[in-house]
Design a protein around this nucleic acid. Structure first.
Lengths: 352, 352
DNA sequence: TGCGATCTTGTGAGCGCTCACATCCGGGCT
DNA sequence: AGCCCGGATGTGAGCGCTCACAAGATCGCA
């Protein structure tokens, strides 16, 4: 309900300012060769009429829209959703609009359909925030006419990526455990269609190899606490430490092993990944690798806008995850590395 | 890189089909009075040319855009982000596009700016997924010319709401604790600018009153685990149960009281709210109230589209949260309700 | 003082579509 | 056979803007 006196058009402004519509357009687009006095008059008229240019009309003729399409998978997981959040925030700061398409499944058809819908809307760039290789591949394979940016993933021609060095994170997590004296370090990996998951696993393997240790026990979860729980139920006894590919799985894992009578970290050290807000308050507080999702989201936007504006420079390299040591990791028990299953006898509560 | 033989226009289709552009338009918009044979010819041409109508041109003349603006606050919290997710999914299913504006702060100016940007883009409706009263108020106060929908919140003229019955959830949580024999039931509320938080608190108060119990201890957190932790550090001894306004705060609370030597649920029962994926695997698994965010997101979209299409029917009523009983609540210890601080002596680990 | 070079401003077309209206066609009626 | 009516199709205008170009104003220099 309102005063609907028809939005003012560029002609209304021109008339009020006593100039031609083209001059108004010049002012609008900040083109040179407009006398300051004229410019001021026009700006005045604009303000007076509360005029705002029509994006539709503008898009119709310029084929530009100041709009970006964003494809996101990962549901409500902390990492993806933070990245999406800050991508959006950065876009708004830059006065760009963003269309979002969330995929719950990784149905290739719907990814393709989303891209086509974006293109139809004249988006000037597309961002893919998805760990799922499939989705990124589909989009990258579409011979887009607009710049495309994705989270670090397998490289595709013409596609830029931004992200966090997952491999380094995997190594750091493992190195931390090795430094504590652990020798049997299992890995609870993420889903295999996630590049991040594979990179973390590769870091774990390489770090283990560098220390002359064998990489044996590896399980694959699906990022959920429940999959971590399942892994914990079947974990072999001789393992003294686990590097879980994310914090949520670490939580489920802790739950499972605690239920089996093991203590964390006395009997089993656990490292997570992400540093979700809950990590600090888990029982015990979780040692993990923090990723700077805010930075990733912003970098993606900035890099994409740069490319849209013809800036051919390379995107900035991946940022480094940061090890946050809390209470879920401890020195490996010296001496025997088996038979600790029975060790869970009562102790007086430790004072602070 | 690409074949850029200029997108086909409606005229190209018309020429190929041997009809006028207007007939093509009729087919496009599914208008009556087109001979089936003609229609078929046109559809054929469309397919052949891979023609897709230009939203910009269409929007320019119709003032419609098949686009919705979504304002979201709440960052990466599970509830809001799930709701946003399913709203987006439902929109895509309905072949509508959605612009998203995330607010990190509740700066009134930026909410207003977001709405104006939406309007400029000819959005046909606006949705606000925000617990923060401020944001909703701002938008509701803007005399929009398009339908507006928001999460359940204070009613505003012309604004529809959809949501979950938070009050009922508060009562159910409290009733559960009362049924277990608790008499000193504290509440850890959410931020006071959240209608949901206040409704949950009101439910707690009313249920307590209905049972003839006094509502004394109440703290206000900010939804984060850390604020729950702080509350737990200062919780009075005589309290035997806490209803926390969300699961994350419950987690921090558990952490704090555990650190103080209390056991959950033996010494303190705790109920959360939301049923985040982590709840099931907390230590102990959390009793909580599940909200169906997927339904809320979908309902918002459906209701909004209905209103856009002139459907004046009332939105469906709020859905009911569901109590999920896990291990963080137990019968109140009979007899003394004080002095239990010292009770945390060692016990043999319970077998399954 | 005059004429081209330069700055400033205006004019017209057209982006791709829908809307309002005009025109055409065939069949049922007298 | 002639006429009217309604379904099928075509015509032209115009949404609000930018682009290419033309024209007018200004200035410098000889």
């Amino acid at each position: 309900m309102a005063d609907a006196p028809r939005q003012a058009t560029i002609f209304d402004v021109a008339r009020l300012a006593g100039v031609s519509h083209q001059t108004v357009s010049r002012v609008l687009n900040d083109l040179p060769n407009v006398r300051p006095a004229t410019k001021a008059r026009v700006e005045d008229a604009i303000k007076q009429l509360r005029y705002v240019p029509s994006p539709a009309a503008r898009a119709l003729v310029t084929k530009r829209s100041r709009t970006i399409g964003l494809i996101a998978t990962g549901g409500t997981e902390f990492g993806p959703s933070s990245t999406v959040l800050y991508f959006n925030v950065a876009a708004r700061d830059a006065r760009w609009s963003v269309f979002t398409a969330n995929m719950v499944d990784s149905d290739p058809g719907s990814a393709r359909a989303a891209v086509e819908a974006f293109l139809r809307q004249n988006v000037e760039g597309i961002a893919v925030i998805s760990g799922r290789e499939g989705v990124t591949d589909i989009v990258a394979g579409m011979e887009l006419t607009v710049p495309l940016i994705a989270l670090q993933a397998t490289a595709h021609a013409g596609m830029m990526t931004v992200g966090v060095d997952q491999y380094a994170g995997g190594r750091a997590a493992t190195a931390h455990l090795i430094a504590l004296g652990h020798r049997r370090i299992a890995h609870l990996a993420g889903p295999q269609d996630s590049v991040d998951a594979r990179e973390r696993e590769r870091g774990w393997r390489d770090e283990l190899a560098a220390a002359g240790l064998a990489a044996q026990v590896v399980g694959a979860g699906d990022w959920t606490p429940t999959s971590g729980f399942a892994f914990g139920q079947t974990l072999a006894d001789e393992v003294t430490a686990v590097f879980a590919a994310n914090d949520q799985m670490a939580l489920g894992l802790i739950h499972a092993v605690t239920e089996r009578g093991l203590r964390v970290p006395e009997d089993l050290s656990i490292v997570g990944f992400d540093d979700i807000p809950e990590a600090e308050h888990m029982a015990p507080p979780l040692t993990t690798l923090r990723q700077d999702f805010e930075r990733v989201g912003r970098d993606m936007l900035v890099t994409l806008l740069g490319r849209i504006n013809g800036d051919a420079s390379e995107p900035m390299g991946p940022s480094q995850p940061q090890l946050v040591v809390r209470a879920s990791t401890a020195e490996a028990a010296p001496g025997t590395k088996t038979g600790r299953r029975q060790a869970t006898l009562a102790q007086a509560p430790a004072a602070d």
